[in-house]
Write a protein that binds this DNA or RNA. Structure first.
Lengths: 319, 319
DNA sequence: GACCTGTCTGTTATCGGTAACAAAAGGCAA
DNA sequence: TTGCCTTTTGTTACCGATAACAGACAGGTC
């Protein structure tokens, strides 16, 4: 069986030492341009690919990033697939690979160069502080941790503006009943926009589940006049609202509008389909990977906050 | 910064050579029982964890398995999350990590010890034959490749029996319009069961999308008498069928029953909820990991076919 | 020309394991 | 007692890279 080419092979072919080849790869600025060309040529001809294990060993790294989901992965959330693929794509460029961890599994240190953590709530902060290795969060937070998230504030601002512009007289917000940063930002997006338009904001909160949202509307539909738009904290909630409205034979979108948040699958499965604030999860995944890799490379230096702009995806649930 | 313990450290503490420690880990049968105890004790006290990169380098491995999705990941399929986590959990036990590849990305050899491939169609077989490294498929196939899948035949058998037992006079099958093994098996499950019950099978096929299924019913509803149950090849199709039935104000489950296949999220989002054949995707993921790891360990030896039994999840769409 | 500088390349040791071989110790038959 | 297995443990070399240091060489200064 043919071995794959090693540094040594390339070095021999280019009539230089291993070290020079290594430098061409890692510190090209230290190598004379003519030599670079020769070496690169040899690498191509031999179809050289660095051996990751060897490099990791020499550099005392692992080439592994762990992706930790701290929420209860309601066993079938489509949410992460795209984030994962976005991340994986970026990571692979640097020959990194992934390990996936769920809540509860030990964050055993040392087996990875860094962590990407999602679903961290305020309660989890102590655990995060224990972590000796670099990590970044997926999800806005007020703990000073580096993170990537959609711009929640902007997202609900867009949604609320859209609802008003569409001509709904009343616009109410049905958020998720958790007291976490992302939710505060979404609510703020709604509230601020209402204020700016001299409207009185009206905020409700329900558990983030289809059933809870549905029940809420079933019980309170009478309290909402016609021509109301429900701006929801998630597509799940939006879908529950829609189902309740459909049951009640309310007219969508004429009498009631519904806007969701997420834009992951559900919006298109609903009937009518949901106008929603669409997150670019793939891009978020890529950014997460970039951030953690950079943080690793920079030995844990802070990377700040990255907001990804959402887009408004128009569908049948609004006029 | 405190280094993590190495073989050397353990060896010193246990007053043996590195090799003996290595043997305790990899070939304990070659080490005297008394020594094993001493060494294991030392490992615990030092909280020793083998360095994966070093091991991989010495054994000429990578500790990486690639997960390849050959289908168009309709950008938000919830399907894989569970498979991925099931796999990842098993892989981690052996200190393996994952890289994710999508259709189109080069299956560049050598960067992994093995592959788990999903969505392979007959057209993809040539590409698979090129692969020099061990791989297993997620998904029944007739190409002789090792695979893990739900028992599709059994699944639709269960579904069809259930429909008959529920008292639907007519039971029709609406499958996915691809000519692949998994679909043949599902159809066979339906057809065989019908034959055994002296009923005439009736098979239709549509694209695996909500919209396609919905249109199909919109156009052909008239042709189906009341008291018909639609056994569907996927929950997407089932959901489309249900939406069309609801629009037409048909009574579910009295006049029309609907049974889906998959049991991933959609069944519970539908209104009414869908009775479906639920796949245990997490378990499938675990098995895939076991299979590929064993295959790697056994140097590519065939691992055969593994069928995971589905369960029937009863909901509102059938009586 | 001697000396220093800066730029570039090569040498050596090392990362933490494992395989292959060598050696020591004990048992048993001749 | 000698010789030959067997069982168990140690020695050595090596996996493929990188860091740290050393050496070679060119040019500039005095």
């Amino acid at each position: 069986m043919k071995r794959t080419a090693t540094l040594e092979d390339v070095a021999r072919k280019a009539h230089v030492s291993k070290m020079t080849v290594s430098r061409v790869i890692n510190h090209p600025e230290l190598v004379a341009p003519e030599l670079q060309v020769v070496v690169e040529d040899a690498m191509h001809k031999l179809n050289y690919h660095p051996n990751n294990a060897a490099r990791a060993l020499a550099k005392n790294q692992t080439s592994v990033v762990k992706f930790v989901i701290l929420e209860d992965v309601d066993d079938t959330d489509p949410y992460f697939t795209n984030v994962l693929f976005g991340m994986a794509t970026e990571l692979k460029k640097q020959n990194y690979s992934l390990q996936l961890l769920l809540k509860g599994s030990q964050l055993d240190q040392g087996a990875a160069d860094g962590y990407v953590i999602t679903g961290a709530r305020t309660d989890d902060y102590p655990q995060l502080n224990e972590l000796k290795q670099p990590f970044v969060l997926f999800g806005e937070n007020r703990g000073g941790y580096d993170f990537v998230d959609t711009n929640n504030l902007l997202g609900e601002t867009m949604a609320t503006k859209y609802a008003l512009k569409a001509g709904y007289r009343s616009v109410v917000f049905i958020g998720i009943d958790v007291r976490e940063a992302f939710e505060f930002s979404r609510e703020a997006g709604y509230v601020n926009t209402m204020q700016q338009n001299k409207k009185i904001p009206s905020v409700f909160r329900v558990e983030n589940s289809l059933a809870a949202a549905r029940e809420f509307i079933q019980e309170h539909l009478g309290e909402f006049p016609k021509n109301t738009c429900f701006v929801c904290g998630s597509d799940r909630i939006a879908m529950g609202v829609i189902q309740a409205l459909v049951e009640a034979e309310a007219k969508i979108p004429e009498d009631f509008g519904v806007i969701g948040y997420d834009g992951v699958l559900l919006d298109r499965l609903s009937s009518p389909t949901i106008t929603t604030v669409k997150q670019n999860l793939w891009l978020i995944g890529e950014k997460l990977a970039e951030l953690i890799l950079r943080k690793i490379a920079q030995n844990g230096a802070p990377q700040g906050e990255v907001f990804i702009e959402p887009t408004l995806s128009e569908a049948e649930s609004t006029k």
